[in-house]
Amino acid sequence: MRLTNDSVAGQPFGQEPTVRELLGEGGRVVARRPCRNLYEANQVDTLLLVRHQGNLFEFYRAPEKDLLRDAVVTNFQPAYGRRLRRRLAAAHQPGPGATANVRIGDTERTNYVSVVYQRGQLSAVHVEPYAE
């Protein structure tokens, strides 16, 4: 099933988790990879992979900012997981006992949230901001 919802696709977490927040709450960097900046000559940025309570986040780290590139959430207990669950519940309610894959995009088709429901319950969410 495909849905269009600019609010959910554009801001699935509401307030997006940050690298600092995740690391401050026990997360850890599990991979770090240099990445050449396409817009600033001679600038090398970093792709950070951060694991927090079983959830995985990829950030593009440039000197001025960390940008969330990808997230896979299966544990909805952290504050960002609870916010995500609330926002998704407002956007879509699967039938009781239903197993479904739902892809929520924005009208510009630049941001996507893929949601898996098992037995009517939220099971996993894949957040893809700025999908290419």
Rank of each mutant, 00 (worst) to 15 (best):
E128Y: 12
G105A: 13
R61A: 15
Q43T: 01
L84F: 09
L23S: 11
Y130P: 00
Q11V: 08
N55M: 00
A79M: 10
V127I: 12
R51Y: 10
V127L: 04
T74L: 05
V127P: 07
T4L: 05
P78M: 05
R33D: 14
G95S: 14
L22W: 03
P78S: 07
F57E: 08
G97V: 11
Q11L: 09
R103T: 14
T18G: 15
A90L: 09
R32C: 06
Y112K: 00
M1I: 15
G95C: 08
L48I: 02
N101V: 14
M1G: 15
L38I: 05
T18R: 03
I104M: 13
N5P: 08
A9H: 02
V29R: 01
F57T: 10
G27F: 04
L68V: 10
N5G: 07
V127R: 03
Q118V: 15
G54Y: 05
T18W: 01
L47M: 08
P17Q: 07
R20V: 10
E40D: 06
L22E: 06
Q11R: 09
E16H: 07
N5E: 11
L88E: 02
I104E: 10
R51E: 15
E64P: 00
V127M: 02
V127Y: 02
R28F: 09
L48T: 06
R119N: 15
R86M: 08
Y60W: 08
R20L: 13
Q118F: 12
V44Y: 13
A71F: 03
L67Y: 14
V73I: 14
Y80H: 07
N42K: 01
N42A: 12
G24W: 03
Q121S: 07
Y39T: 08
D106K: 02
T46F: 03
G97R: 02
N55P: 00
P96L: 15
